[in-house]
Amino acid sequence: MLTAPPVEANGNRRGIIAMCTAMACFMTNDTLVKIVARDLPSGEIIAIRGAFAAVMVFGWLVAAGHLRDIGRVASPLVAARAGLEALVAFLFISAIGALPIADITAIFLITPLLITALSGPLLGEQVGWRRWSAVAAGFLGMLLVVKPGGAGFLAGSATVMALLSVFFCAIRDMVTRFIDPRIPTIVITLTTCVAVGLFGAAMIPFQGWVTPSLTHVGLLLAAATVVVAGNHAMILAFRGVEVSLVSPFRYTVMVWAIVSGIAVFGEWPDVASWAGIGLIVGAGLYTLHRERVRLKVRRAEVEAKATLP
C-alpha cells in the first residue's frame, strides 16, 4: 500500500503560494489557448505548445544540474501523473473553444471538492467541518456561475469533456501527493510536458492539421512559457502539504477568469455569477484564515510543552 510522505514544515504555506501562482499562470495560458482555438484543432495546439514547453523544461533541468536524475521519469507514479495530465489537457482544450472562459473555469473548480472527499480515506488527513463548509461554499459559488440546467451548461459535449477533465485532474493531484519527494520537481515537470505534447501529436491524424500563422506560433510560445511555470508551481503545491487545505486555493483562478473574460473576450458576468465569484473567493480566504488559526494553536502547544519541567 502506498504511503504519502509527511507534511513538511511550512509546507502548507508554500503550497498555498504555489497554488495561487499556478492559477495565475494557467489562466494566462487558457486565455492564449482560447484565442488560438478559434483557428487550430486541439491536438495541434497541444503538440505545438508541448514541443516548446519540453525544450524549455529540458534546458531548465540541465541548468539546474538535474540531468543525472533524468532516469527518474520512468517512475510509475511520475509516468501515471504525466498520462493523467495529458488527458486533462486534451479534454480541457477541446472544451475551452466552445464555452465562456469563466464558465469552464468555474466547472473546473469542482476539483477541490473531489480532492477533499478523497484526502480522508486515501491520505488519512483530518478534514473538519469548517474546511468542508468552506469547500461547499466554493462549490455553491461555482453553481451560481455555471447555472446547471441552463442552456449554456447543457449545450453539447463541451461540458461533458470539461467535467471529465475535472475528474482526471483530481486523480492527478492525488497521485502527485504520493510521488517520492527525492524526485526533483523539474523532472516531473519535464515528464508532464513531453507526455502532453506526444498526446496532442497522436491526435493530429484524427483531427487534421491547419498551418499555423506566425501569430499562432507566438501565442503558443507564450502559452508554453506560462504553462511550464504553472505546472512547476502546481507540482510544488501538492508535495509535502495537506492536500485538502491547499486545493481550495484553486478558487483564486476565478478572479483571473473574470478579468480575462471581460478584457479579452467581452464576456461580462451576470448578477448570479458575481455572487458566485464572491462565494468562491470568500471560501478561499476563510480557508487561509483557518490555517492561520491552526498554526497559532500548534505553536502554542509546542511552546507549552517546551515550558514543562
Score class of each variant (00 low, 15 high):
Val210Tyr: 03
Ser165His: 08
Val281Asp: 12
Asp270Asn: 15
Lys147Arg: 15
Ile16Lys: 09
Val241Lys: 03
Ile96Pro: 02
Leu32Met: 12
Val160His: 09
Pro100Met: 10
Ser94His: 09
Thr215Met: 13
Phe265His: 03
Asp270Thr: 03
Arg298Val: 03
Gly71Leu: 07
Gly15His: 00
Lys296Ser: 14
Met23Leu: 13
Met27Tyr: 07
Cys193Leu: 11
Pro121Asp: 06
Ala229His: 02
Val281Asn: 07
Asp103Thr: 09
Ala272Asn: 13
Leu295Trp: 05
Trp132Asn: 05
Val127Leu: 02
Ser273Ala: 15
Ala237Asn: 03
Ala64Pro: 01
His289Ala: 11
Glu303Arg: 13
Gly15Asp: 07
Ser213Phe: 01
Arg172Asp: 07
Val297Thr: 10
Ser260Ala: 15
Val127Gly: 01
Ala233Arg: 10
Thr116His: 04
Arg177Glu: 02
Lys34Leu: 07
Phe167Thr: 13
Phe90Pro: 00
Phe238Leu: 08
Leu109Glu: 06
Phe199Gly: 00
Gly11Pro: 04
Ser213Arg: 09
Leu77Ser: 12
Ile186Gly: 11
Leu77Asn: 02
Ile277Thr: 15
Val160Arg: 10
Cys25Gln: 01
Val293Phe: 12
Leu236Ser: 04
Val243Trp: 06
Thr307Trp: 06
Arg13Tyr: 09
Met234Trp: 08
Val7Arg: 04
Ala158Tyr: 06
Gly152Val: 11
Ser247Phe: 00
Phe178Tyr: 13
Gly149Tyr: 12
Val57Ser: 10
Pro6Gln: 02
Ala53Cys: 05
Thr105Arg: 05
Ala158Asp: 12
Ala275Glu: 13
Ser157Pro: 11
Gly152Trp: 04
Ile277His: 03
Ile171Trp: 00
Leu285Asp: 03
Glu303Val: 08
Ile171Pro: 08
Val246Arg: 04
Leu113Phe: 14
